[in-house]
């Protein structure tokens, strides 16, 4: 079984961690943005703070505390302040360097959970499709969206995979 690094603690996290779950206001916000404009926005080169935050997905080893998760989610929201990604961004997958037979880790945007996956363990929540490219593609990480994947290189450049 994959090891949940941070269990979703509904009440406490709602207070402390800015969740990526959709809210009524955010739905309206997303609806206002045309999909084309959203595509253009999500094509932009990722900032250094954002890249650094995502690289910390496995910085805490097998244990990831809520503070780290909060920082990562904050970084995602800071990166795209003008857009609400809930329901669009499913999660982020990247290659895992924890050793043993750990292959990839993921941040599940719907559950705000960081998990590390061993060889043969399938990723959840529609993230499995990014597994091979995360391991073999040479990208820093893969953002998995409902309609596509965006592979982010170490310099922040974004490639869209339809």
């Amino acid at each position: 079984m994959p090891k949940p690094m941070l269990k979703p603690q509904t009440q406490s996290r709602t207070d402390s961690v800015p969740s990526l779950k959709p809210s009524q206001e955010s739905k309206q916000k997303t609806n206002q943005l045309d999909m084309m404009k959203l595509d253009r926005l999500l094509r932009k080169t990722r900032s250094k703070p954002y890249m650094d935050a995502i690289q910390h997905l496995d910085a805490g080893g097998h244990v990831c505390n809520s503070q780290q998760t909060k920082e990562i989610i904050d970084a995602i929201q800071m990166e795209f302040p003008e857009v609400e990604l809930s329901g669009v961004l499913l999660g982020i997958v990247s290659k895992c360097y924890l050793g043993d037979d750990y292959e990839v880790h993921s941040l599940d945007a719907t559950g705000d959970i960081i998990e590390h996956f061993r060889r043969g363990q399938p990723l959840k929540g529609g993230l499995e499709k990014a597994r091979a490219i995360a391991i073999l593609g040479g990208y820093e990480f893969i953002e998995v969206y409902s309609d596509c994947c965006r592979a982010v290189s170490s310099n922040g450049n974004v490639s869209v995979i339809k």
Binding site: I133, G137, Y139
Partner: peptide, 17 residues
């Protein structure tokens, strides 16, 4: 450059595990 990066990524997406 954008199109080329997409072509590369789409090809890499097909790499079989």
């Amino acid at each position: 450059a954008n199109a080329y990066n997409d072509v590369v990524a789409n090809n890499r997406m097909q790499i079989p595990d």
